[in-house]
Nucleic acid binder design. Sequence first.
DNA 1: GATGTCGTCATCCTTTCGGATGATTTTACA
DNA 2: TGTAAAATCATCCGAAAGGATGACGACATC
Lengths: 156, 156
Amino acid sequence: MRRHVLIFGLVGGLLIATLQYTEYRFVIIEHSVELYSALVAILFATFGIWLGLRITRSRETIRETVVVREVLVPAEAPALEPFAPNTAHQQTLGITARELEILTLIARGFSNREIATQLFVSENTVKTHCARAFDKLGAARRTQAVQRGKELGLLP
Amino acid sequence: MRRHVLIFGLVGGLLIATLQYTEYRFVIIEHSVELYSALVAILFATFGIWLGLRITRSRETIRETVVVREVLVPAEAPALEPFAPNTAHQQTLGITARELEILTLIARGFSNREIATQLFVSENTVKTHCARAFDKLGAARRTQAVQRGKELGLLP
DNA sequence: GATGTCGTCATCCTTTCGGATGATTTTACA
DNA sequence: TGTAAAATCATCCGAAAGGATGACGACATC
């Protein structure tokens, strides 16, 4: 967190500096101000959003783990509408929350790339989670993983 | 979410516009470029962070409400009797019996090759059936086809 | 006999998946 | 503060899946 802010400031300073530099070099063409403004705006906006998401992610995970413990009490209950994953099976198999999240997205028919964009991570990361989840489920394909997941009550 | 992005773009455009306007009015003092860059950067950064927080907060609340309901609503036995596919949907979509057969095998996690050996046909044939079924279901992937199939009551 | 549907099979080509492996960074917790 | 578990990302490579297209035979129907 502290690091983020630091990097943020650093990047900002660098950007300003390079702007200042390049401005007096070769891009004194017309409309440079608006162009630069737009560029900087876009850059910092995306960065800001990314930062915001990143910061709040930690809180989310905390909430999720809490949730898991609460759900553990009613235990073996195949609920139907708001789905409650079978945490017993999940824990015995050692399937993490993130892996389960990706499994549900797989079950809903998304490709790895789509999942990656939805979760704001790289496709490689998704593939890693997939591989681990498949291994834990003893599945060789995503369709098989989905099937196993449904059998075990991990997926709706 | 879509709304957010829209507002975001709108605000961005407005900002740029006002920048462009004011620039030619009275603030052509020196160092305007860097000043503006910095200003825009800060503005958009904070806005981005705010947006990020906002987006994730809604997700969090959703999670929480789900939890509460899960704890309150207990069980409901899962019905498991011989499955009868929804022939109405099947016919309107023009899905043949063979295609449905292959879809069920896909849903059970088999690969094309495995399906081919099970049905005593070539893998190419299976792939053709797959392609046709996916087309009729509007699916791009087998997982998506399975999901659609379950939604339509074609698959158990 | 012409037409149409269905099932079968093929080839070519691109995209997606999955396995193996290693590395770095967060996060949680003792 | 150190450690273990999670999460993240990457690269290489082979396998699986998917798209497009053409073809052929069996059967039913008009």
